[in-house]
Nucleic acid binder design. Structure first.
Lengths: 207, 207, 207, 207
DNA sequence: AATGAATGAGAGTTCATTCAT
DNA sequence: TATGAATGAACTCTCATTCAT
């Protein structure tokens, strides 16, 4: 039986259902973030919710489905932001800056709400620190940068350039999350400056 | 006993400990590279060696230990190279270029010898393409860059800078492996140029 | 609540206990007939009724109980018929013919009403074609024949004879259901003739 | 650990393997015979062998596979006998008698070796009494009779006739197994007489 | 009385590891 | 030392049944 103390208003049916779904998603985000998809088991997930094993399958058909649900939630939340940036930016630098800012903002949000949920002082040996949402959003950014480059980015090897941009975004973003306070603007400044200046020095074509 | 007729080199199945150990390591590198640590099973590994399941444990105490052994082998092989680079380079740019070249060279070697061992025409659905050695060597490079930066790299946020450098190295390196012919010099040029020009535009301090 | 639009008769979902009970029994007969007791699940049954899972247990205490209820219903319906036959028949042949006719008639009825309930064109991979009622009624016939034989049937091994009679009845009955039109008279003629002539050639005693 | 007392010569590897395979097959035959395929679990089977759960899968890939293996063993053992009968018999009556004798003989054998293995006095609530082998062999007999009828059996409805013959064979065979001593000849006499005399009285065609 | 989400025992199966040979 | 069968805990997933609403 779930710990009733953790479920205020357990009486309301709809609320319970929404809450349980959220509890599973939250637990799954944590577990995937900590152990990675392969290592994580469905049991790891439901154990954190206090629900029974079978209950998981009332909400998701498989481990994969809950992962996909998280990814899609992240992408859905982020996609309109990204689209807006692309439309609003009139040149390549503006786009890069906007996209990176949006991505870092998302990371910060996500990270904050993740940390908030964790009991303090707990230690996790396998911390990977990347939730399915982050991964999904990162993929969105990657696609945007690749597409933007092919649509007329700077004259450099586009494949390498895209790889480098997203690599910088990912790693600087990860570092940013480890500092207090989280300074998305500072990190974005760094990343964008690096990219823009770096590109400036590249030879014209490539491939 | 497996049907010897089915094993490629079955005729000369050497009994020496050294060769068995090598056979297991080679098989493990392939398997981890193809499927990743979690998905790979000990059976996958020993199946490729033609040895028996139990024999695996005469050489390694666990699945984890063989992974660690590969990582360490990569690191051990790479460490002196890296040390030499560090000593030989008189300024930051030289070091970065040398380190990245060394890393890309290692990647190319590793990749080549991996491909060489595969029977032609075989298809692997799960190819990940990163062996434990590559991962370990990458960590060495990461550490070297971080240390070098803190010992007097360019005047920029050292944490972010290190993250960005290694990110570029990793991703451009991965892209490099996907092209034919593998052009370590071209890829290194790209990466180093990006890094050095990018840094040039960064503000002085950080933190 | 299930989407009412998806349920055939959803508009007039009656609330009476009698009708719900009947709905469950009908669904259970179909499901057991199609998949057999073990394979059938309670969910399979209630899904067809449009009722909720828990409601099943307001009417039957278990999956087993609904099976037993169906069997008993069949037996109860058939028993008086059979008794009448027994009383009305003045010799063994008459009884056998009457009992087999009654059984085949029941089979045909049951089968027809079963088919009538199925949406046309639907295909069921596991059709077994024998409802719990059929099974129960068959047991009644078996008992009657055994009893009749022991009360003065033909002078042959009664145990074997009963076994043979009911075997013929069951299998010829099953074949009968597979033909169109269902010809209970023809099938009964075949079965009775076979039995009566066969018996005629048997040696006197037995045991 | 398996009860060593039950495994004399456990030292010999090959013997152990053969013995274990046999132990699993024997246990499976019993379990399927007692509970039926659906109700039986893999754990029921291995529990009787004293082996560990996983060991089952060293010998059979699934519950289904062990069932199929038993069926095929039965059919393989029986098929040549049946073929011989068919070739040796010059008329329909001879064939029926030979086939039924062969089938009853198989049943008796099978049953005897089954009983021999059971600890005396044990009671089984679910006894079905039909092993996969019996089922498979019965199917062989069925096919043979159907084919023989279509190739020129007596002039009666062939479908009904085949159904009736195999029904008699099955049920009289089952009864036979319940008596001591098991009298295959007597049972076969009964069954064949019934069939042959019964057929004699049937009208010419059918359908 | 009806609902349907929650439950948890138990199903088939996998696999890292052990150990008798 | 090499072998490979045996082990058993742990996995994903199902389903009869319960129970708060």
């Amino acid at each position: 039986m779930p710990d009733l103390a953790l479920l205020p208003n357990a009486g309301k049916r709809e609320k319970t259902k929404v809450q349980n779904r959220k509890a599973i998603l939250d637990a799954a985000r944590e577990v995937f973030g900590e152990m990675g998809y392969d290592t994580a088991t469905v049991r790891d997930i439901i154990r954190r919710t206090g629900l029974a094993a079978g209950t998981f399958y009332n909400y998701f058909r498989s481990k994969d489905e809950v992962y996909v649900a998280l990814s899609q939630a992240g992408a859905r939340r982020f996609a309109p932001l990204l689209k807006e940036m692309r439309l609003a930016s009139t040149n390549w630098e503006q786009f890069v800056r906007a996209a990176i800012m949006a991505y870092f903002g998302f990371l910060a949000d996500e990270h904050e709400s993740w940390l908030a949920r964790r009991p303090p002082g707990e230690v996790h040996p396998h911390v990977q620190g990347e939730t399915p949402e982050m991964t999904a959003v990162f993929d969105e950014v990657r696609a945007a940068i690749v597409s933007e480059i092919s649509r007329g980015g700077p004259a450099a090897d586009p494949d390498y350039l895209a790889a480098a941009c997203i690599a910088i975004a990912r790693e600087v973003g990860a570092k940013m999350l480890q500092r207090r306070p989280i300074d998305t603007r500072g990190a974005a400044n760094f990343a964008v400056t690096l990219v823009m200046n770096g590109i400036g020095g590249l030879p014209k074509s490539g491939h």
